[in-house]
Every structure is written in C-alpha cells, then in structure tokens.
Amino acid sequence: MTLLAKNITLSYHQYEIINNLDLEINPNEITAIIGPNGCGKSTLLRGLTGLLMPAEGEVTLDGKPLQQWSKKTLAKQIAILPQNPSAPEGLTVKQLVEHGRFAHQGLFSKPTLEDAEVVDWAMQQTSVIDYQARLFNTLSGGERQRAWIALALAQKAKILFLDEPTTFLDIGHQLEVMELLKELNQLHNIGIVMVLHDINQAGNYANRLIAMKQGSIVADGKALEIITSELMKTLFNANTKIINYQHNGHQKSYCIPVGI
C-alpha cells in the first residue's frame, strides 16, 4: 500500500496554503508533521486523506487518485481523527465506537459477529472497554481521545491520521496516547501519520519527521538527523538548545527552548 502526493496544491477560499508539494507516506511507520502555526500541517493532513481535494496535482492510494475511491472503500484504508471533534449527544462509548463500522455495513444489514468483535477489539486496545456503557460526553479528555481512537480503529483502516491528538491533555495522558499509537504501529502494523506541536514528543515517537514552513517541506528524515538548533530557528524563530541523551539504550535528542 502506498500513499503518494504528486505535485499537490491545496487551497482554502482561493488562498493557496500548499503549493506543489510531493510526499510519499510509508504505511508501516509513524510519521509526525511539525511546524509553526498556520504552516499548513492540518491542511496537508486533510489533503492526504481526501478531505480536501487538491486544486492541482493528485494524491493516489495504490496508484489510484483518492477521488476515484468510493468513500466506503477509502474508509477501510484510511481513518482520520480531526482536532477536537464533537460527538452526538446521548451516545455511550460503545455506541460511539460502533459507528466506526459504518464503512463495513450495508444500509439495511444488521451488525455481524465480526462487527461486534472488532468493536470489542478496538475498545480493548484503547482500554476504554471498562467504561463502554458510560455516556461519551461524561468522559475526561484523555478517555475521550482514546474513545475516538477506538472509533477510528473499528474502521480497520491501514493508516490512521491524527491532527494534534495530544492537545488539551495533561502530560500523563499525552504520553498515554503516544504509547497507544506506538503500540498500534508496532503490534498491529497500523501506519500513523500525525500533526504534533511538541517537537520532543514527535522526536521520541516518530520514525520520520516532516518539518513544514509556509506550505513547504523544509526537512524530512529521522528525528536525530533533522532536529537541530538551525531548523528550530528556521521553523519557529526560536533559540533552542538540543541535548543528546541515552534512554533505554536509544540515542535521543531533546529540544529546550531558551528564548527568541
């Protein structure tokens, strides 16, 4: 499975946000997109997933442009979790997650045993199974985010796209979500592509970092290779100190903002 953006131009209200961008997404790894506010990260995410059709160029999945995929078939390949989504009122966690099976069901078909099993599996993976009977709107921020991920998992998509999945969460819940995504990638071979604000989180969890500025990719590679003071200065106009350290036998780099 290959997701390929060829020469895409993405615009909102006739404003060009991204111009002539090429990108290939590896469905087996964790990719993080970083960059300053308004650089087009979220727009790129929407463009890569077919939520926003490119004005020029095309995004292809297995060689076929996204707009030629039927919505339901595409949903079995790609799941998207936008930033800060809202849920209909009065649904329990389980009822919410069951909506993830929409693409696998006909208009009149009853939920199959497989549907039920996948929903249970998704809730188990995200550890929301214990409060599946609770109303979604009574959950805390961290629990909600995991329930949303369960919904996306229930789609059984091969790549999961997330727009700032850790925003509004405290540090513990942020790490919980990141660990969950890492586990999904390593154990279930689900590709993860996410927009992240926190450079260190991106560096810690992503196999590949894509740094964007003003609608273009300015750096693309492994965290250790691309996270440098120079890049941070270019991206955020901030002075930073990069510290290299060992953690569990892995070489990591840590970026500390020191001023502007």
């Binding site: 939520l51 949903a75 979790l81 936008p82 989504p85 209909p88 909506h99 929409f102």
Partner: peptide, 23 residues
Amino acid sequence: LAIIKPLSVLRFDDDIAQSMGLN
C-alpha cells in the same frame, strides 16, 4: 428508516463522518 445508518453518522463533524466512509 432506510437512512438510519447514514443519519446516525451525519451527526458527527463533517470531517469525521467522511472519514468513516459517509458521503
């Protein structure tokens, strides 16, 4: 009654509804 499933998904935000496979 025929559109119960799409109707239920329509209650979500557009982006997430489309991500679930809804036109």
